[in-house]
C-alpha cells in the first residue's frame, strides 16, 4: 500500500485537487459492455449527481469507485491512491482482499435497498464497522453512533431493529452507518428509489445537510429537483458513456446533446 501511494501520488500531483479520478474505465458483464471508457474527476467538497436512464451504467460506475465491481481496464483512484490495485511500472497488481477492505473504510456507500443487517439493532448496525474494521473501542463507537443517529433525526431508535422502521428511517440509519467510518467520500446508489414517495423528502434532507457540510459526494439518482438544488456538477450517462457534464444550470436547463434533452423531457 505504502509503495503504491508514493508511485501514484507522483503521477497525479498535477491534479491534486481531485478527490476521485476515473480514467478510461471499461467494464463488461459477459457480452454486455456496461462501461465504455469513462473519464471523470470529482473535486473535494463537491457534490456530483449522476443521471441517466436505467442500464446506462451509472450504478456500475459508482460500484467501481469502492471496488465492489472490478474494472476490466482503466483506473480509479481516490485521494491519489489507486483503488483495488497497486501499480508498479506498467503493471497493476490486484490488492489482497484485506487491503481492499481497508481502502473501503475511507469510502462510504449507501445502497438503494439499504442493506441494513436485520439481526442487529440500529446501534449495532452503526457500531459494527468502526469496531471491527477500525478497531475503535466499543464505548467510544457507541457514543459516536448515538451522535450520528441524532444527526439523522433518529436518536430514539437506537435499540430498534431495522424491520421496525419505515423505509425512510432505514435509509437514514444506513447513511449514519456509512458516516460512522468518517469517510472522506460518500457514494449514494439511488438512495431514494426504493422509498414510498412521501418518504423521499426526509432522506434527501439528510443528504442535503451532508452536502452543506462539505462532504464529497457522488449521488446516482433520478431526483432531478435534488440535482438542481444540491449538485455542483451533473453528469449525464447513456449506454456506458458520459454524454455530458457541467453545472446543473447548464446540463439540466440547456443541455447540449439531443440524448440528454430527450431523457430530461421524459423525467421532468
Amino acid at each position: 500500500m505504502s509503495s503504491a501511494t508514493t508511485t501514484v501520488s507522483a503521477a497525479v500531483s498535477e491534479t491534486a485537487t481531485a478527490k476521485v479520478e476515473i480514467r478510461s474505465v471499461h467494464k463488461n458483464f459477459g457480452p454486455l459492455h456496461v462501461l465504455r471508457g469513462i473519464d471523470l474527476d470529482v473535486r473535494a467538497g463537491e457534490v456530483t449527481v449522476v443521471l441517466g436512464p436505467s442500464g446506462s451504467g451509472k450504478s456500475t460506475l459508482l460500484r467501481t469507485i469502492n471496488h465492489l465491481e472490478k474494472v476490466d481496464s482503466g483506473t480509479v483512484s481516490v485521494d491519489g491512491t489507486l483503488v483495488g490495485y497497486r501499480r508498479s511500472g506498467n503493471r497493476l497488481y490486484e490488492l489482497r482482499e484485506r487491503d481492499i477492505l481497508k481502502q473501503r473504510t475511507r469510502i462510504g456507500f449507501v445502497f438503494q435497498n439499504f442493506h441494513l443487517f436485520p439481526h442487529l439493532t440500529v446501534l449495532e448496525n452503526i457500531v459494527e464497522a468502526p469496531v471491527s474494521a477500525l478497531k475503535r473501542p466499543r464505548k467510544e463507537a457507541e457514543a459516536a453512533a448515538r451522535k450520528l443517529l441524532d444527526r439523522v433525526g433518529l436518536a430514539d431508535k437506537a435499540e430498534a431493529y431495522p424491520k421496525q422502521l419505515s423505509g425512510g428511517q432505514q435509509q437514514r440509519v444506513a447513511i449514519a452507518r456509512a458516516l460512522a467510518l468518517e469517510p472522506g467520500l460518500l457514494l449514494f446508489d439511488e438512495p431514494t428509489s426504493a422509498l414510498d414517495p412521501e418518504l423521499v423528502g426526509e432522506v434527501l434532507d439528510v443528504i442535503k445537510d451532508l452536502a452543506a457540510s462539505g462532504t464529497t459526494m457522488i449521488v446516482v439518482t433520478h431526483e432531478i429537483g435534488f440535482a438542481r438544488e444540491v449538485a455542483d456538477t451533473v453528469v449525464f450517462m447513456d449506454e456506458g458513456r458520459i454524454v455530458e457534464q457541467g453545472p446543473p444550470a447548464e446540463v439540466l436547463d440547456s443541455p447540449r446533446h439531443e440524448r440528454t434533452r430527450a431523457f430530461l423531457s421524459k423525467v421532468l
Binding site: 469502492n66 465492489l68 482482499e97 484485506r98 477492505l101 481497508k102 481502502q103 473501503r104 473504510t105 469510502i107 456507500f109 445502497f111 435497498n113 442493506h115 441494513l116 443487517f117 459494527e128 464497522a129 471491527s132 474494521a133 452507518r177 456509512a178 467510518l181
Partner: peptide
C-alpha cells in the same frame, strides 16, 4: 446485499461471515 454492505464497510472477511 448483506455481504456487499459488509464489504463496503470494510468489515474483515472472517468477521463478515461470523457476525
Amino acid at each position: 446485499g448483506q455481504s456487499q454492505a459488509a464489504a463496503s464497510l470494510g468489515i474483515p472477511r472472517l468477521r463478515q461471515l461470523r457476525r
